[in-house]
Design a protein around this nucleic acid. Structure first.
Lengths: 215, 215
DNA sequence: ATAAATAGTGCTCATTTGTTTACTTCAAAT
DNA sequence: ATTTGAAGTAAACAAATGAGCACTATTTAT
């Protein structure tokens, strides 16, 4: 379970996420400090330690930019991920997502799917979401399909992602031009969403697969 | 268009991708060197420069771990092709089908996918086909998708099936009214096929699943 | 055969970057 | 009133890391 962050910590956490998404690598202490007018690296470091203690980050000691974002916060999920049968990755399937709850919380797990490790490239944090709604039918994603999500993947413009807006989770095409983030559906009947309040928006992960079962 | 890589460059590029995927940040020159037994950082650096010049990477000068992966377009680097011997609901993937040969002949197998037995109802004869062509895009099946086929399933009108017509294998919607068999595509640009010579037609199986991998 | 591209070693150097200690400020809780 | 926790400054330090040069070896193409 994730512990609550202070306002400052949350802003820093969001910045790290955005930096990582835009650059493909995490920021340094000094880059974070510069952004938030913190003149001492020590001040930044303690923020990172707080975020680590609360389970949001992992930090590799003495490694530059050794920040990795922790998107699978609950320990129960780790148990699910470690159930590997003969080196085959078992991916948890997330069903309904209660408002405000972490997306990978145990109570949301509906089942699991087993994928050949040759297909899913060593991303043990992957999970699957059951799609509700038809906003992506033109991209060949239907209601009831499972989308496989890689939380650590680098998201680029045009990628299909799962985004969280306030307490809603949706599948859309991601576009970031001049810091204006757009979430583009693939259905003429839906409108593009322009993200205004970045605090209420986060990228859950990139869609790396689609699985559909008929009957 | 991306330029071709040397064997060495490709291995290094794949390693960088995997490292990024696993750790959330890119490797350092020395970490790459260690992996490939390159004792000098300069040797590694020139590989990165080559990869940059050929459009695979971007590098931020003087920044540690300042490597970002360029995912512009088609990366047909099939690092996914090896087979492992495990016996749990392993579904073979059929690639090209030689004219006249039985569709599940061993030489046609391109790989395999492992599916949770909870999903596939113990149909051990299931196999997967890689879709070529776009005749089913309106049913959410795109070129390159894998369709999972159950040869034993009972096929009803309206079901999606894989049919063999002479030496061609296609995915279509099946309809049989008054002994007139129609194969209906899901794409306005294609025409419904009416089967005349039933000797040259057979049902390979029913489509029970669709799997798509993005990137 | 000769030039060009590829691959690598060993070394030095400069910068980047994380670590640590000591001290300050402020607000909220006890 | 005192303690506690969050937030920050300044300075010195060590480790990590990229940059660069001179030189060698092998393969590939002209």
């Amino acid at each position: 379970m994730k512990k609550k962050l202070t306002e400052r910590q949350e802003k820093i956490f969001i910045f790290i996420q955005e930096y990582q998404q835009e650059n493909g690598y995490p920021p340094t202490l000094r880059e974070i400090g510069k952004k938030f007018d913190i003149l001492s690296t020590f001040g930044v470091k303690r923020h990172l330690e707080a975020l680590t203690k609360k389970g949001y980050l992992n930090i590799l000691s003495n490694a530059s930019r050794g920040i990795s974002i922790n998107k699978n916060e609950s320990e129960s999920l780790d148990l699910i991920n470690y159930q590997e049968v003969n080196n085959i990755s078992k991916i948890p399937i997330i069903g309904r997502v209660a408002a405000g709850s972490p997306i990978t919380a145990e109570e949301n797990v509906e089942g699991s799917i087993v994928i050949d490790p040759a297909f899913i490239k060593k991303d043990e944090d992957s999970f699957a979401l059951k799609v509700k709604g038809d906003s992506m039918i033109e991209a060949g994603i239907f209601e009831g399909d499972l989308v496989i999500i890689s939380p650590k993947a680098i998201v680029k413009n045009g990628d299909m992602i799962v985004a969280r807006l306030e307490d809603e989770v949706t599948v859309k095409i991601y576009e970031n031009k001049n810091s204006i983030v757009k979430l583009i559906p693939q259905n003429k009947n839906y409108q593009t969403i322009i993200v205004k309040n970045k605090n209420e928006f986060s990228i859950v992960g990139k869609v790396t697969g689609v699985v559909r079962w008929i009957n």
